[in-house]
Amino acid sequence: MFKDNWIHELAKLEENYEPCVMVTVLEDRGSVPRDAGTKMLVTRDRIIATIGGGHLEHVATKMAREMLIASEKSLKVERFNLGARLGQCCGGMATLSFEPIGTQQNHLVLFGAGHVAKALLHIVATLPFRVTWFDEREEVFPETLPHGVKKLVSDDPVGEVKHMPPNSYYLVMTHNHQLDFDLTKAIIDREDSRYFGMIGSLTKRKKFDFRLEQRGYSQEQIETMICPIGISAVNGKHPAEIAVSVAGELIAHYQGQALEQKRPTKQYRNQDLTDQHSQPSDVGEPPLEEKIA
């Protein structure tokens, strides 16, 4: 007896914003592996339930995954003769529908609920992102959240990093530079972020680079951090202006565009490291303009 568990699995996929294609046997004539109404779900890396196995299921799975890769949204109907040409000996005929369900969404982990973060979420909520939003302070969150945004009040935001899904986007926008630095180490240590940006000036970037180098992080690891964040074509210090700039960089990234190089040159970094030997390594909270990209 076949175990058709696709209903519960579909609910899980929708909860995790994972797209799939539902393959349904619409019509069966003659001898076919499964009857009309049978369904299976195909994701990029899994098959849930079955339409009977064999070469028919193999071909259907291949077609479904091609639809996922192409981000197709329209339903398709295909008819298959289950003869020698398809590699099956049933001799019947099956009509299958291919229905895309859900859209691929990136996962953004946002630390900090300040003015810029709040302005940014109004934009991100309209983009293909689902957001996990962290802060230690319950009172700083707005009363209502945009669709797809989940807030988490945590006394240990650094410890939360290890629980995030792989290949997430990370934005660090907290009110505390030491917390920013601890989050930076935790995110880099994961080695699986799709994007890691931190709000701040070039001065903050140089100080963090120096501290990370002192703790044994390689240049390759340090370069996974983007700071300052945002596209240079949009500048300004108003939260809405910064939000638009940062959203533009996120869009460019998930669209596969090359991001601007904003890291200090090697010569500039070397000079800065010389200057910092006489400075304490701990960084205090700078004025507002120092935190703006």
Rank of each mutant, 00 (worst) to 15 (best):
E160C: 14
M1K: 07
P165M: 08
L82F: 10
P228H: 07
V124E: 00
E213L: 15
E15L: 15
E18R: 15
E99Q: 11
P100Q: 06
E72A: 13
Y217K: 11
F196R: 12
D282R: 15
Q267Y: 02
N16I: 07
A125R: 06
R85K: 15
D282H: 12
D135C: 07
S218L: 05
Y169T: 06
M22R: 12
L26A: 10
Q279P: 02
Q271K: 15
R46L: 12
A36F: 11
V234D: 00
F208D: 05
T174A: 09
M225I: 06
S154L: 12
F208C: 08
Q271R: 14
E220P: 00
N270Q: 14
G159A: 11
A258R: 13
P166N: 07
E260H: 08
Q219P: 02
L288K: 14
G92C: 14
N167D: 08
W6L: 12
F181R: 10
K204P: 01
P287A: 08
G53L: 10
M1D: 00
P128F: 02
G200V: 02
H177D: 00
P287K: 15
G53Y: 09
G52C: 12
P228R: 04
I226R: 13
S218I: 06
E213I: 09
A186I: 03
E139I: 15
I101R: 13
R34G: 04
A243Y: 05
T144G: 03
F80Q: 08
T274V: 13
I48W: 07
S97Y: 01
E14Y: 09
T184P: 07
P100S: 02
F210C: 04
E72Q: 13
E160M: 14
L202M: 03
V140M: 04
K162T: 02
L183N: 05
G284E: 01
H163V: 03
K39W: 04
S245M: 10
F210Y: 06
T103A: 09
A70C: 11
S97M: 01
K204E: 00
H115L: 09
M93L: 03
S168F: 14
H107E: 04
H277R: 08
R190Q: 00
M173L: 08
Q276I: 11
S74G: 06
L152G: 01
A70V: 14
P142L: 08
S201N: 00
V140H: 07
H175N: 02
G200R: 00
A233K: 13
C90H: 08
Y268N: 08
S193P: 02
L183G: 03
S168Y: 09
K266D: 02
K118R: 09
D135Q: 11
T103C: 15
R137D: 00
T43V: 12
S201Q: 03
K151P: 01
E57Y: 14
R34Q: 11
M198Q: 04
K185S: 03
F80H: 15
E139G: 13
F98I: 03
G54W: 09
A293K: 05
A117C: 02
I188K: 10
H115C: 05
C89P: 15
V244Q: 04
K162N: 01
L96V: 06
L171K: 11
V59I: 09
Y169G: 14
A252G: 06
S278H: 05
K185D: 01
R130Q: 10
K76H: 05
T103Q: 10
H107L: 10
A247I: 09
L202A: 03
K207T: 03
K150Q: 07
N5Y: 10
A240C: 05
V109F: 08
Q104G: 14
L41C: 11
D156L: 13
K3E: 03
R190K: 08
G200F: 03
